Each structure stands twice: as structure tokens, then as C-alpha cells.
Simulated assay, not measured.
Amino acid sequence: MPPMALFMITLGITLGTLTVTSANHWLTAWLGLELNMISILPVITKQKHPRATEAATKYFLTQATASALILFASTLNAWQTGSWDITQLNNKLSCILMISALTMKIGAAPAHFWLPEVMQGSTLTTTLLITTWQKIAPITLLYMISNHTQPNITLFIGLLSILVGGWGGFNQTQLRKMMAYSSIAHLGWTMTVISLTPNIALTNIIIYMTISTPFFLLLTTTSSKTLQALSTTWTHTPTTTIILMLLLLSMAGLPPLTGFTPKLLILDNLVMHKLTLTAATMALLSLLSLTFYLRTTYLLASTASPTTTQSATLWRLKSHQNQLTTTLVPIALFNIMILPALLM
């Protein structure tokens, strides 16, 4: 990609997100979302492959539909209340439509159908952008309208997302699809408390982003896209393999790793709001996600020395990739060990 084109795309993605996060007017937020969507389409279609074109088409149609719903809901609210302020979403129908549109934007269930296919047709770097940076703007809007959202709707979306995320990733061998369903499950945990305690929901999604970022970058350095390719990482980079295992366990929410913190806070908050049955259901549904996290971790551990892997090595690290791995390992360790450091 030419440097000028890369600069313009990066500028568009950054400005789009910053416009949404600093907006007070619905039209300004809509403009930022559109700029963000248009800027990332060339990134998805960078690969000259039919799967990339298909992924970009699905992404565009879904995001355009969600943007149209946002525009319709904000216009309806302005017609009924006379206010375009984001925090003044007082019309009940507008609020329901807005939640539906933002749910489609971030890829939470039941509007999750596009996320696994788009991530499978994109590169690992693009999937990192889709699961982290592209979710900042819609999550910010959900945070800003959290006072007007109905807990019953967000709880239903959250529970359904946790179920779909766990069940969908159960049988996946493609790492990008597995991480897509992992993202859906973590969005479910965020949606359950977005109307009850927005700060905890924001903490959950931030911690997930800080854990998934080094995970995707380490996958990029090893060019691993399937479980079979991932099983060969012990041969050349044992340190990277150990970090990948810890990151997977942290995403699974096992104590004392950092990923356990937001889940504990969310369950505690639900119990405090007398939603014990909902908290118990979420804990049980999260066992589905735990299964494929542990399966991947077991696969990595079972190929460790002195055990020899039967899979052919599909990649070789280059010099700049070795340098990147050396930089990523301390960052990943810091993200994993935040909770134990705080408890010491």
C-alpha cells in the first residue's frame, strides 16, 4: 500500500473514532461512524482475494444498515423531544432502535452474523483492528446512553451473546473465527452491566482489548491462522508459546490472571442488584468459552519439549519478527499480571 494512502486511511480511522468519542450531537457521531467505516474498507480489501472482497461487502452492508438505524433513531428522538443531544435519548422507541443499531455495530448477538465471516476473510492485523479499535466508538455511544437503556434488553443481549460466543467457538479450528466468537462472548459480559454499572462494563471491554492486542500481534509474528499451525510454535519460539497460553487463560477468566477481574466485578454487581439467577446463568454459559480456551492451551502444552509435534512447520521467523516478539513479550506479561501485582 502506498505511504500516502496508508496515511489517509490511518487518519480517517483515527479521526472517525475521535469524532464519535468527543461528540455531543447525534449527527456528529453518525458522521464519525461513517468516516470510520469507509476508512477501514480498503484495509479489509488489501488482499486480492475473493474472501477479502466478500468480507468487505458484508462489513459495508451491515455497518451501513446500522448507521441508517442510528440516523433514524436519532431523528425520531429529535422529533419527539426536540433534542439532538446524545445523552438525552428519552424516547423509548428511539432508545430500543439505537441499542439494536449499536449492537449490530459491535457484533453482539443476535446481530453477530457478520463478525466471524469478516474476520475470517481478513488478515490478522485487520482482525485486530476490528475487534479492538473499531469497537471503541459504538461502546462509547452505549456508555453515553446507558442511563436510558432498559436493563431487560441489555441483559437479554448479554446472555445471548455469551451463549452464542461460547457455542460458536466450540468447534472452531480457525483462530480468527475462534477469536471472533471470543469477542462476541466478551461483548456479552459488557452488555449485561452496561445499563446497571457502565464503568464496570467499560473496564471489562478495556481489559479484553489490552489482552487480545498482544495475542493477535504474537499470532501475526508466527503467521499462525489455524490450530495446526499454532501447534508448531514450540519448535522455534517457546517463550511466545508460553505467553500465548497465559493470554488464552487470562481471556478465559481464570484467577489470578487479569481477565478474572472484570468477570468477578460483573458477577458481584449483578448479585448486588438481586440478579443472582442471571449471574449464575452467565457463569455456567461461560464454561462453553472456557472449553475452547482450555482446548487451545492444552494443544500448545502437549506439543512442548520433549514431546515432538507431528505437524509440519509452516513458517520461519524473520529477523524483524524476532525483534517484535522480544518487544511484545514484556507487554503481554504486564497485561496478564495486572491483578496479581495489585494484590501484592
Rank of each mutant, 00 (worst) to 15 (best):
residue 300 L to F: 09
residue 249 L to Q: 10
residue 152 N to G: 00
residue 316 R to G: 11
residue 209 M to Q: 08
residue 144 M to W: 12
residue 137 A to E: 00
residue 92 K to N: 06
residue 295 R to I: 07
residue 306 P to I: 03
residue 116 P to L: 00
residue 246 L to V: 09
residue 301 A to I: 04
residue 330 P to F: 00
residue 51 R to K: 14
residue 87 T to G: 13
residue 333 L to M: 08
residue 3 P to Y: 01
residue 155 L to Q: 06
residue 287 L to K: 03
residue 278 T to S: 02
residue 197 T to S: 10
residue 226 T to H: 09
residue 34 E to R: 14
residue 31 L to Q: 11
residue 69 L to M: 15
residue 250 S to N: 05
residue 170 F to Q: 07
residue 222 T to K: 14
residue 344 M to L: 13
residue 51 R to T: 10
residue 68 A to E: 05
residue 243 I to R: 05
residue 151 P to C: 00
residue 251 M to Q: 07
residue 19 T to E: 01
residue 288 L to H: 11
residue 81 T to W: 09
residue 205 I to C: 02
residue 90 N to F: 13
residue 254 L to W: 07
residue 170 F to C: 02
residue 266 I to T: 06
residue 189 W to L: 02
residue 89 L to Y: 06
residue 175 L to I: 15
residue 168 G to S: 02
residue 67 S to T: 10
residue 89 L to H: 06
residue 295 R to S: 08
residue 71 L to F: 14
residue 308 T to A: 12
residue 196 L to M: 05
residue 235 T to G: 11
residue 298 Y to I: 10
residue 211 I to M: 13
residue 275 L to G: 01
residue 47 Q to C: 08
residue 306 P to Q: 02
residue 74 S to E: 08
residue 61 L to S: 14
residue 126 T to C: 11
residue 58 K to E: 13
residue 319 S to H: 07
residue 322 N to T: 12
residue 209 M to E: 04
residue 24 N to H: 02
residue 277 L to A: 10
residue 79 W to C: 10
residue 339 L to W: 08
